[in-house]
């Protein structure tokens, strides 16, 4: 017998997250949901008397396979949410009807099946599995070894990009930069002021003028820079009680004047 509580927990833990496959937008969310499903299945294996498989399920699926999915998502872009609008006419209906029909069909067949369970209740144990695996199925094991090696090599071959030009050393890169007319010395560091980590504030030259190139180009493109004049004005304005009230450690005016990234909620 199987614990009823276990079954329902497993059912809830598998069916609900797996629905994310159909309705969630971000692949990362889906992947994490599937991790949950895998854990639930591992629990089911343990409950069904297959602790070895339960462990393997955790290790292989949640630990390896799903993590690999996540890595691939990072490679191809984590945050591109999928547009859920269907592009193929009727595909949604066909998909739901076919899958639903398949489910109903399977359930009806299972309901018809009359299997007399043998209640020997032998609990699968790693030793028992190992005994069978390395006696009866040893050849299959060997073949699976070949398969895994082949798969690994295949993945390498598929993802390998041959280098078309010789690798350039650092010395060559430096020489090329100098030849292209780059400044041989370091750019000045950004300005540092007492109340701000100030990577986005340009340094001041001896005449008190801001040096534009002291700020990272990335911040410039993101339009997250400020000029020194404005910041000085803010500094002189510290006794304004409005600013003190803000929970942020950063100067209050700072957040207001900063242009946030497109599409993000201003903090």
């Amino acid at each position: 017998m199987v614990s009823e509580v276990l079954f329902w927990i497993v059912a809830a833990l598998t069916v609900i997250p797996s629905l994310a496959l159909l309705f969630a937008k971000r692949p990362v969310h889906i992947a994490m949901s599937i991790v949950l499903v895998m854990v639930g299945l591992a629990a089911a294996y343990v409950g069904l008397g297959a602790p070895f498989l339960g462990v393997v399920q955790i290790v292989v699926y949640t630990g390896a396979v799903m993590m690999m999915f996540l890595f691939v998502m990072m490679l191809v872009g984590v945050d591109n949410a999928e547009d859920m609008r269907e592009t193929i006419k009727g595909q949604k209906w066909i998909g739901f009807l076919a899958a639903g029909g398949l489910g109903i069909l399977l359930i009806s067949v299972i309901g018809d099946a009359s299997i007399e369970p043998r209640l020997t209740d032998t609990v699968g144990n790693p030793e028992g599995v190992a005994m069978i695996l390395f006696s009866e199925y040893v050849l299959v094991m060997e073949v699976l070894g070949f398969l895994l090696i082949t798969a690994a090599v295949g993945a390498l071959v598929l993802t390998h990009v041959p280098r078309l030009t010789p690798r350039r050393t650092q010395v060559e890169l430096q020489a090329a930069r100098v030849l292209a007319g780059a400044n041989p010395v370091n750019k000045p560091m950004p300005g540092v002021y007492a109340r701000h980590n100030a990577l986005d504030v340009p340094a001041l030259d001896p005449q008190g003028q801001p040096i534009e190139e002291s700020v990272s180009r990335v911040l410039e493109i993101r339009r997250q820079t400020q000029d020194g004049q404005e910041f000085r004005a803010q500094l002189e304005d510290t006794d304004n009680p409005d600013h003190e009230a803000r929970p942020h450690g950063a100067p209050s005016r700072d957040a207001d004047t900063r242009n946030t990234r497109d599409g993000e909620e201003p903090k």
């Binding site: 017998m1 199987v2 614990s3 009823e4 079954f7 497993v10 059912a11 598998t14 069916v15 797996s18 629905l19 496959l21 159909l22 692949p27 889906i30 992947a31 499903v37 089911a44 069904l48 999915f69 691939v72 998502m73 191809v76 999928e82 547009d83 269907e86 592009t87 595909q91 949604k92 066909i94 998909g95 739901f96 076919a98 899958a99 639903g100 398949l102 489910g103 399977l106 359930i107 299972i110 299997i115 369970p117």
Partner: peptide, 30 residues
């Protein structure tokens, strides 16, 4: 509650997986 319940559960999961293959455009999700 016998082990048969898990077979039903498996049927539901299988149908959900099949629907995902048909409906999702993202290759990773499919």
């Amino acid at each position: 509650m016998t082990a048969m319940s898990f077979v039903y559960l498996a049927a539901i999961l299988f149908a959900i997986g099949a629907a995902a293959v048909l409906l999702r455009r993202n290759a990773i999700v499919a």
